[in-house]
Design a protein around this nucleic acid. Sequence first.
DNA 1: GGAATAAACATAACATGTTAAATATACTCA
DNA 2: TGAGTATATTTAACATGTTATGTTTATTCC
Lengths: 151, 151
Amino acid sequence: MTQLSNIPMRHFDRSLPMALLRAREAVMKKFSPALKEHGLSPQQWRVIRVLVEEDTLDATEIAERCALLMPSLSRILQNLERRKLVWRETARDDQRRSLVSISGKGRRLFQTLSPINEARYAFITERFGYGKLELLYELLDELVEKIDEDS
Amino acid sequence: MTQLSNIPMRHFDRSLPMALLRAREAVMKKFSPALKEHGLSPQQWRVIRVLVEEDTLDATEIAERCALLMPSLSRILQNLERRKLVWRETARDDQRRSLVSISGKGRRLFQTLSPINEARYAFITERFGYGKLELLYELLDELVEKIDEDS
DNA sequence: GGAATAAACATAACATGTTAAATATACTCA
DNA sequence: TGAGTATATTTAACATGTTATGTTTATTCC
C-alpha cells in the first residue's frame, strides 16, 4: 500500500476550481447576453468600465484592475481603439507608456449598458440575499489573501 | 434625471464575476504548475480525472462533468488521444456516440499527479480553514441554484 | 419505407488565456 | 557617456471559450 492509499479521494465535484468556475458561469449567464447584443465581450466591458471610473490609465494599470494579462489586453485595446470606443496617446514623460482614455462613444455605450447590468446585479442580490452575497465576497477575498500569503 | 441616476454605482471591485475570477486565479496558481510540468492544461487534467473515476464515458457526459463546451472538448480529446493518454471507440448501439476511456499511460500520469494536487488542496484547506471552505462550497452551490432557478 | 426532425460530434472563425520572445524606451552606474 | 539592465508594450504560437454551421447517425411519424 502506498502512503496515501488510505486517504479517500475527494469527489470530482468537491473541487474548488470547478466550484468557482461553475459559479462564475452561472453569474456570467446573467450579464453576457446584454453585452453581446452591444458587441462587447465581458473582458472588453471590464476595460470600458474601469476607464469610465478613472478616465485615463496606462495599459499596465488597466491590466491589473481588470485581471487581464498584457497580451490579452493589448489585443483588446487594439480592438476597442479600432471601434473608436477608446483612444490612446503616448505618455510625454515616458514614451514606453500608452495612456488610454474612454471616448464619447465609449461613454455613451457604458451609459446604455450600465443600468441593464445593475438590474441583473439587483436580481442576483435579491435571489441570493444581500447578507450572503456580502459573506461570499468576504470569503473570496480572504481565500485569495490566505493563499497568496507568503507561501 | 433618469430613473437610476440616484443609485450609487457599485465600485468596480465589488463585481461578483471579478471576485470569482480572482479567487479562481489564486487557487489555480497552486495547481497549475505541477500540471504544466507534466504537459497538462487544467482542462486536460479535468478530463483525465473524471475518466479515472468513471473509466468510460461518452463525450457529452465528459463535457457536462468537466464544465467544458463540446468544441473545446473535441479538441482536447484529439490531443489526449494523440498522446495516448486516452482512447476511443464508437458505441456499438449508437454510432454517433464516442466512448472515451483512460489508458494505462493516462492512469499512471494521474497517479503521479494526484498526490501532488491533494497536497496543494490540503495546504489551501489548512490556510483557509476547513469550516470556511465548506461554507464557501455551500454558498457557491446555493448561488448557482438561486440564479438558475426558473428565471 | 421514407421524409422530416433530433441528437452527437466535428469543424470554422474569432476572441481570450498563457508563456516566450521581440521591440522600444528608460534607467543605472562604472 | 555608454554598456548593461530594467520596464512597457507588442507579437508569436498554441490551447481554450464561444457561437454558428456542417456531418453523420437515430428517431419519429405519416
